[in-house]
Nucleic acid binder design. Structure first.
Lengths: 189, 189
DNA sequence: ATGAGCCATCCTACTAGTTGGTAGATACAA
DNA sequence: TTGTATCTACCAACTAGTAGGATGGCTCAT
C-alpha cells in the first residue's frame, strides 16, 4: 500500500474516533511512521487530507450502490447490506462511526471546501436511499408515509442517530436494536 | 447574571457549535470579557466547565419532565413540546445542536468524568421517553412494536440523527420534516 | 464603628507543550 | 536531470494551566 493511502486510512480512523478537531498531523505521523513534513508533501493542509478521506468514502458508496443494483439485489436486502456493514464495523470497533457523520457534527468549524465534500457525501447517500426506497415502495415491500426524499432522510437520520446513541452508551448492540425497529416500521403493512 | 453562569452559557454555545475539542478558554474569555485565569478560578480544568454545562442540561430535562407530568399534559403533547423546543432552537440558530449529542460524538476523546456526565444525560432522557411512551401506549395513543426501552432509544436516535442531517445540509427545516415522519409512524394504527 | 483578618474574584505575567505549516537538504528512480 | 518522496530543523501561534498580586466585600472581636 502506498504511503498516501496509509495516510488516508490513518486519518479516516482518527476522524472516526476523535473528529476533525481531535487529531493532529503528529497523530497521523505516529501511526504511519513518517515525519510530519512528509504528510504535508502529500496533503499540503489538514483540510486536504480530510477531504481525501471523505471523497474516498463517497466514491465507495457510489461504487457499492452500483454493484448492488447491477447484481439485481432486492431493495430490502440492499438496505440490510448497508446497515449490516455498519453493524459489523461498530461491533468489532474497526470503524465505530461514519466519517461524514462525525464531520457533520463539526460542520461549523470546517473549512468550506471540506464542508462541501461532507455535503456531497450526504447527498450521494440520500440519492441512493431514495432510489432503493422508491423501488421497494413500487414493489410493495416498503410502506412509505411521506415523500421518498423525506423517507430517505429519516432513514439516514435513524442510522446516524443510532451510531450516536450507541457511542454515548458504549453499547454497540444498541445500534442494531434501533435499526431493527426502523426496518419493522418500514415493512409494516 | 453571575460570571459563573455567563461562563457556562458561553461554553454551552461553543460546545454546541464547535464541540469540546473545537473551543478554548481563550474563546470563552473573549465572549464573557474576562481573562482566562478568571475562568480557571471558577472551573479549574476545561472538563470541569464542560461538566457544569452538561449537568445543568440534565437538571433542566428532569425539571421540565416533572413540570409536564405534574401539569397532566398528555403523552403526545409532551413529546411535541420536546421536539418543538429543538425545532425552534435549530430554526433560529440559538442552539443549533444538543450539547450532549455533540459530546457523544466526541466521546472517545473526553475525560472519563465528563463522559460519565454525558451518559447520565442520555440516561435521564431515555428514562423520560420510556415513561412517556409507556403511558401513551397504555392509553392507546402510541403504537409500539418493540420494548419500551428500544422504542425510547429509537425515538432519541431519530431526534439526534435529524439534528445531524439538518446540520450537514444546513437546512433547519429538515429537522422538522424528519421528526414529523417519526410522529406519523408512532401514531399509526 | 472600626479595624483586622479572611476569602472570593479577577487580574498580569508566565510556563511547557502542541498546533499546522515552511525551508531546505538528501536519496533515488525514470 | 528532472521529479517524487522523504527527511531534519525550524517557526509563529495557540493550548491548558500556574504563580502570585490587587481589589473589595464580609464577618467578628474590640
Amino acid at each position: 500500500m502506498t504511503t498516501q493511502q496509509k495516510l488516508i486510512d490513518s486519518a479516516r480512523y482518527l476522524i472516526q474516533t476523535r473528529g476533525y478537531n481531535g487529531f493532529s498531523y503528529a497523530d497521523v505521523a505516529d501511526q504511519v511512521q513518517v515525519r510530519k513534513a512528509s504528510i504535508h508533501h502529500h496533503f499540503p493542509a489538514k483540510a486536504d487530507l480530510a477531504r481525501a478521506v471523505v471523497d474516498e468514502s463517497r466514491a465507495q458508496i457510489e461504487q457499492h450502490a452500483r454493484a448492488l443494483a447491477d447484481a439485481g439485489v432486492d431493495p430490502q436486502q440492499q438496505l440490510l447490506t448497508y446497515t449490516g456493514y455498519w453493524e459489523k464495523c461498530i461491533a468489532d470497533a474497526s470503524a465505530p462511526f461514519c466519517v461524514a457523520g462525525m464531520l457533520a457534527a463539526e460542520m461549523p468549524t470546517l473549512p468550506s471546501d471540506l464542508a462541501d465534500a461532507v455535503r456531497a457525501h450526504f447527498r450521494a447517500l440520500t440519492n441512493w436511499l431514495e432510489a432503493v426506497l422508491s423501488t421497494g415502495s413500487q414493489l410493495g415491500v416498503f410502506q412509505l408515509r411521506n415523500s421518498v426524499r423525506q423517507e430517505a432522510e429519516a432513514f439516514m437520520a435513524m442510522v446516524y442517530g443510532a451510531m450516536l446513541v450507541a457511542r454515548a452508551y458504549a453499547t454497540p448492540t444498541t445500534f442494531a436494536d434501533i435499526v431493527d425497529l426502523e426496518f419493522k416500521r418500514l415493512l409494516a403493512r
